[in-house]
Design a protein around this nucleic acid. Structure first.
Length: 204
DNA sequence: CGGCCGATCCACT
DNA sequence: GTGGATCGGCCGA
């Protein structure tokens, strides 16, 4: 399987990349365990003009500075004091764009992910919810800012790409504070039929 | 320096 | 469908 290269993350905007990441395979190798699944839900956060983004209007802090880096690194942060959320930084240096990964369909290391989720059964279903996703994959705050072209967290090309009629576009979750920007159609997901079709390409 | 609050999840009812 | 858990970052004083 082919690992996505830096150039993938640095071309195009966050919306195009949110769409392009559907079907790609998010993998982690953490504590000697290789786990992962193909991405089936994303949200685009387009920095400067997006009130839902941490970097709205050029806000530049210790936390958000990572979003201004060139694409191809992770942005992991703590939400509600409990959940780590995993984002992919995209675009060129100076553009604070990122894609939030919200769900995967598990294809590797399933038993270990279930262990991390205290026995929650992930086999045969999606791992929905960005906090649960990072817990299953073993991602936490120490992975903030690391390259996605390495051997700890990386993304592989899709084995099979979802077709347009398998993709749903909606407004984003939990961004009601963002005013009009809360209505932006920046959330992308593969429908149930598409998830099952893509999953079949991972079976031996 | 203090207080507020969020890109959530789960265990209740 | 609702509320509690739980904490770092941010803002205003």
């Amino acid at each position: 399987m082919l690992k996505l290269e830096l150039s993938f993350y640095q071309q195009g905007d966050a919306i195009a990349l949110s769409r392009a990441l559907l079907g790609c395979v998010l993998m982690t190798r953490i504590s000697e365990q290789e786990c992962g699944g193909f991405i089936c839900e994303t949200e685009a956060y387009s920095g400067l003009n997006d009130r839902a983004s941490h970097a709205y209007n050029g806000r530049f802090t210790k936390r958000t500075k990572i979003m201004y880096e060139p694409g191809g690194i992770s942005y992991v942060y703590l939400c509600y004091g409990i959940h780590h959320l995993f984002n992919v930084v995209t675009g060129v240096s100076g553009t604070p764009d990122a894609v939030l990964i919200r769900a995967i369909v598990p294809v590797a290391g399933i038993s270990y992910m279930e262990k991390r989720l205290s026995g929650y059964v992930v086999s045969g279903r999606s791992i929905d919810g960005p906090g649960k996703l990072t817990k299953a994959l073993g991602i936490n705050g120490i992975h903030n800012g690391i390259s996605l072209v390495n051997d700890e967290i990386w993304i592989e090309e899709a084995k099979e790409v979802p077709s347009d009629n398998e993709i749903l576009v909606t407004k984003r979750i939990g961004v009601g504070f963002a005013g009009d920007d809360a209505e932006l159609p920046n959330r992308f997901l593969i429908n149930e039929q598409g998830r099952q079709r893509l999953f079949r390409h991972f079976q031996a």
